[in-house]
């Protein structure tokens, strides 16, 4: 039994095959990276797994439960959280509240409980606040917790999005280019955070263009090109793989 298993996944946009017959598995507690040139279908693949897009055919199994075509909030409830390539934060809420949203799937208080502030929700609310403070602390966001996200530098915004996704205490976290647009120091901080959460037992699925980051942190790498799987293996295997080198550096004959 695999933790996360993708079988023969297809998805096209009009005539374009964005994801074509992709299959792979992810081991629990590992960091799996997905790389490939622009337009290779990496983000589409993530959107399929997180339910943002519907699949044409194929299966996505998480702990042997079918995920394909479930709405995103259901997938979140199962313990899969994600970040976005172009950071998507709630700019109308403070940094602290952004992180608190992360507890949504781990709390229950409904509409009526909220409207009348019923006593049984107080403990839950306190738990949400405590967990959020803990996460803010871990991600070094406590000093900006009262600010609004659009006032933060870009690097902090990425980290906030990561923190929000982690507050959920997910089993799998899907990171879509977490280091894009970050400077060297911020990238280092990000790499540190990613390895840290892997050590807690959270499985990481990551798309990234920064090859040194990928080679440093990932346990396994999947290479996509034009929607197809080209190679899969450890960072060492991938570095030696001829086809991957051809995609990234071009053909000798060209």
């Amino acid at each position: 039994m695999s933790f996360l298993e993708v079988k023969h996944l297809f998805r096209s946009f009009g005539g374009l095959q964005a994801v074509f017959d992709v299959s792979f598995t992810v081991k629990k507690g590992s960091i799996k990276a997905i790389i490939g040139p622009n337009g290779a279908g990496k983000t589409t693949l993530f959107n399929l797994i997180s339910g943002v897009l519907k699949v044409d055919s194929g299966e996505i199994l998480f702990n042997n439960v079918h995920l394909e075509n479930l709405p995103p909030y259901k997938i979140a409830e199962m313990g899969i959280s994600r970040t976005f390539q172009n950071v998507k934060l709630f700019n109308n809420m403070t940094v602290r509240e952004n992180v608190m949203i992360g507890r949504h799937t781990r709390s229950k208080a409904g509409f009526f409980t909220g409207m009348f502030n019923l006593p049984w929700s107080w403990k839950e609310e306190e738990e949400i606040l405590n967990k959020s403070e803990e996460i803010l602390d871990l991600f070094h966001l406590e000093e900006v917790a009262h600010l609004y996200p659009d006032n933060l530098p870009f690097g902090k915004q990425r980290i906030l999005e990561f923190a929000r996704a982690m507050t959920m205490e997910p089993e799998i976290i899907i990171l879509d280019e977490p280091a894009a647009g970050l400077n060297i120091h911020e990238t280092e901080e990000m790499a540190e955070l990613i390895t840290k959460i892997r050590d807690w037992g959270v499985t990481v699925l990551i798309i990234e263009h920064d090859m040194s980051l990928i080679m440093d942190i990932s346990d396994e790498i999947l290479v996509l090109s034009y929607g197809k799987k080209i190679a899969e293996g450890t960072p060492e295997d991938i570095q030696k793989n001829d086809e991957v080198i051809k995609i990234y550096l071009g053909d000798d004959d060209a």
Partner: peptide, 11 residues
């Protein structure tokens, strides 16, 4: 704030 993000946070 952002419907897509809210949805993927479980809302």
């Amino acid at each position: 704030g952002n419907e897509e993000a809210a949805n993927s946070m479980g809302v």
